[in-house]
């Protein structure tokens, strides 16, 4: 899911940075308004948490492992605007310090994982869980469905970005300059692996963590109320 440098042309990278700038600006404003002073470290803690979720290897069928992105989980725990900043920060740290995801692709990666995945996941969770009790099983199911659907939506937008490259950037003799596969290849390839494997990893992790917190410390699932108080 992390797009490295060189996969997207300058037009796509530039548009994605331009798209993320107002989102980051609005997120910074919303967080300043909703987060009380005591919870300032919460953002940094959530960003570090988002970074580390990707290090937890989850066993999947076939004896291998995969990892979750954790963006939906972050949105459920601290709200979509704060999660947008936290996941963006985690992605920037990964790109700048550890070379995971490109620097010119930070805008695109943040758009997919810190905006699309976070907001889609959060609102799917909200709609499905409705006004159910914080400890209800419905919330566990909602978290799982939100994790699965939002990750696949993010995979779809990533695939569209890849698939647009041969259409947008080609030499006169027909050579692709960036990702060489069109929409017809990029979308099935990206969605295939996310629908079959990684979406389930995301769903399982999101649902099980919500279930665990319901049993151990349900007030952590109501952080948003506390934040706004």
């Amino acid at each position: 899911m992390h797009i490295p440098d060189g996969y997207l042309g300058p037009a796509t990278s530039g548009v994605m940075y331009a798209a993320m700038l107002p989102i980051w600006g609005l997120a910074a404003r919303m967080v300043k308004e909703t987060l009380n002073r005591r919870q300032v470290p919460l953002l940094a803690i959530a960003a570090a948490f988002s970074f580390l979720i990707m290090m937890f290897n989850v066993p999947i069928p076939g004896g291998t492992t995969g990892h979750a992105v954790g963006a939906v989980l972050a949105a459920i725990l601290i709200g979509p605007w704060a999660a947008c900043i936290a996941v963006s920060v985690a992605l920037i740290v990964q790109a700048l310090l550890f070379g995971d995801g490109g620097i010119t692709a930070i805008g695109a990666n943040c758009f997919n994982m810190a905006f699309i995945e976070v907001f889609a996941g959060y609102y799917i969770y909200k709609v499905i869980s409705g006004s159910s009790a914080i400890t209800s099983a419905r919330r566990v199911i909602a978290a799982g469905i939100a994790g699965y659907a939002a990750l696949n939506l993010a995979a779809l937008t990533t695939a569209i970005m890849f698939g647009l490259q041969p259409l947008l950037q080609k030499t006169a003799s027909g050579e692709s300059l960036y990702c060489p596969y069109g929409l017809g290849v990029a979308i099935p390839a990206m969605l295939g692996e996310h629908l079959l494997i990684f979406g389930w990893v995301e769903a399982i992790v999101t649902a099980l963590v919500v279930k665990y917190l319901q049993k151990q410390d349900a007030r952590l699932l109501e952080t948003l109320k506390e934040v706004r108080a």
């Binding site: 919460l42 803690i45 570090a48």
Partner: peptide, 16 residues
């Protein structure tokens, strides 16, 4: 794995 992630969040939250 999920228990570990949730426990990490619990500890993180206390830390703030």
């Amino acid at each position: 794995v999920a228990g570990n992630i949730a426990s990490l969040w619990q500890r993180s939250y206390v830390l703030q």
